[in-house]
Amino acid sequence: MAKTCTYFFTPQSPFAYLGHERFVALARKYGVQVEVKPCDLGKILPISGGLPLSKRAPQRQTYRLAELKRWSEFLNIPLNPQPKFFPVPGDPAAKLIIATRLAHGTDAALKVTGGVMRAVWAEERNIGDPDTLAAIAQEAGYDGKALLKSSETASVQAEYDRYTEEAIAANVFGAPWYVVDGEGFWGQDRLDFVERALAK
């Protein structure tokens, strides 16, 4: 039986972006079934003692920018630490990803997730804009307008709410967050540990 990894994230997270393709590659390498669960970090942070970026101390914000630059260079992944369209609400993109999974499956959802993340951090595109989201889904090979319409339904909102509640129940406090065999791993810099867990 294939091992399962639950993948909690917010689509506008730069660290989720830095880890996304590497995580997808690991899942393929080990034949892992991924549970794609975008969630609302805005509801999770107050419960877990975190602060939104705008409310963090200046020294923390400065260090974050330095870390993004370091990781971008180390991984050779293009990233603008201060993109034009950020901060940006993640809810519409998260719901597009959920709609994609419901219509086309996990691989499609992971593909669209990668497109959304690149749009923010490498392509200077606004993922808060419905037309941009539809275009990203279309570029991934799917009917962008149909998925966008689907993403606005009550059933997709219910899934999004459920994933957020599941993240809270799993003691998630940041993104990305990977869960393997009940063990949580926070951050793309923990992917070496995720791989060890998947390889067991």
Rank of each mutant, 00 (worst) to 15 (best):
T6N: 15
Y7N: 12
T10C: 09
P11A: 05
Q12C: 03
P14A: 00
Y17A: 05
L18G: 05
E21D: 15
A25K: 15
A25H: 13
R28P: 00
G31P: 11
V32T: 09
V32A: 07
V34Y: 04
C39L: 13
I47C: 11
G49E: 11
P52V: 09
R56Y: 10
R56P: 10
A57K: 15
Q59L: 05
R60E: 03
Q61P: 09
A66N: 12
E67Q: 15
N76G: 12
L79Q: 09
K84F: 00
F85Y: 15
P87L: 14
P87M: 14
P89H: 05
P92E: 14
I98G: 00
L102W: 07
A103V: 00
H104K: 10
D107E: 07
A108M: 05
K111R: 09
K111E: 03
R118H: 12
V120A: 03
A122L: 05
R125C: 01
N126T: 02
G128K: 09
G128N: 04
P130M: 06
P130H: 12
A135D: 03
E139S: 05
D143G: 13
G144W: 00
T153W: 05
A154Q: 09
V156A: 06
Q157L: 03
A158H: 13
D161G: 07
R162A: 08
T164A: 09
E166Q: 02
I168G: 11
I168W: 10
A169T: 15
A169E: 14
F173M: 07
F173I: 02
G174F: 08
Y178M: 05
R190H: 12
L191M: 03
F193N: 02
F193P: 01
